[in-house]
Design a protein around this nucleic acid. Structure first.
Lengths: 185, 185
DNA sequence: TTATAATGTCACAAATATGTGACATTAATT
DNA sequence: AATTAATGTCACATATTTGTGACATTATAA
């Protein structure tokens, strides 16, 4: 199926570019189990592939994050779901996060991506703030650190070897427990 | 000074290759504020540069880790110092960690690097084990997860924007607090 | 100031990566 | 079985990266 191949290439590219932004397309093709020729049938050039990766990251990861925010009125539930969404998005989350941090990226309020990024982190901050008011999160910890820890836990959970016999659900629970305990008073 | 330039190139390369393994050498040179020609005066080719980076990572980061292990008999102090050492090593820690995880790396008991890697993680496991016996760390959390969290916190601490007005010491304390609280019973 | 060491500039060949056309092979559909 | 869609194989031109020689410039030490 054509769509299957195309999205497999995209997933592969996100995975590869995430740790090796300048990797040759051969590596992406191999990782997707297709030929370089096939890759070029779906994507005009490297630039188009990267752009599509960014868009794909947008529509799936951003959507999941926004869904997590809207999943509940309860900040603790929202926070948990944002973490789980990040883990589910896998490498896309790091990609997303890096994109807006990458040197050369000029953060603009007109750019749709940046608006959504701001929306997500505005909400994240509000959620943390409310939990700090409720004394569920340590008031002395800065929002920057919490955001940072959030990213770090998602990063390592995603990159965790599947070798370990823990099933996916357990890993997610571990991630959430470590995260919330790590920032509790 | 010649040594200054050489080590600046190495630090630059570790930094660049860590997030973009196939980055052109021009990028490394720019980052080190030298010409590509100068870079090639110190390193025969790309391969030599990568090898030297690995060795540099070994001698500094590995040494720091081993020093942390030997810094005390008290497992809690050892664990804290290992985390701080990882943060101090900066990108080198991720490099070190990734090296032994990278696809294609065959872990060998004859390889000096692997022996040290094993030594460090053997000790890490023992430290965790003792802290679990003392009920300082939750007994139900697996060593794999703890190791993973350790890496994740180091990763994000290193990559944290210096923009935030937290000074370095605060960040390290935050990292340690979040880590130990995250895995306590 | 002069000699020397370190780095920069520029040009260029070799290696690697990129993108595409022509045609073969395989898989799915009718 | 015949047709069609998707992918693979191979060759090739172009672009980019890599490594190096020759010489200029700048910094450092005698």
């Amino acid at each position: 199926m054509i769509l299957e191949t195309k999205s497999r290439i995209i997933e592969s590219a996100i995975e590869v570019f995430n740790s090796d932004y300048s990797a040759p397309l051969q590596k992406v093709a191999d990782n997707a189990a297709v030929t370089r020729r096939t890759l070029h049938r779906y994507f005009k050039d490297r630039n188009e592939l990267v752009t599509v990766c960014e868009r794909e990251m947008e529509v799936s990861c951003k959507k999941a994050m926004i869904a997590a925010i809207n999943s509940s009125k309860e900040p603790l539930v929202q926070l948990k779901n944002m973490l789980l969404a990040g883990i589910d998005c896998g490498a896309k989350y790091s990609f997303f996060y890096k994109l807006h941090q990458r040197a050369g990226h000029t953060h603009s309020e007109k750019n749709k991506n940046c608006v959504d990024y701001d929306y997500i982190y505005h909400n994240f901050r509000q959620i943390i703030n409310r939990l700090q008011q409720q004394d569920i999160i340590d008031k002395s910890i800065t929002i920057e650190w919490i955001q940072n820890l959030h990213t770090g836990i998602i990063y390592s959970t995603v990159n965790m070897n599947i070798t370990n016999m823990l099933n996916e659900k357990n890993i997610k629970e571990l991630a959430w427990n470590s995260f919330i305990k790590g920032i509790s008073p």
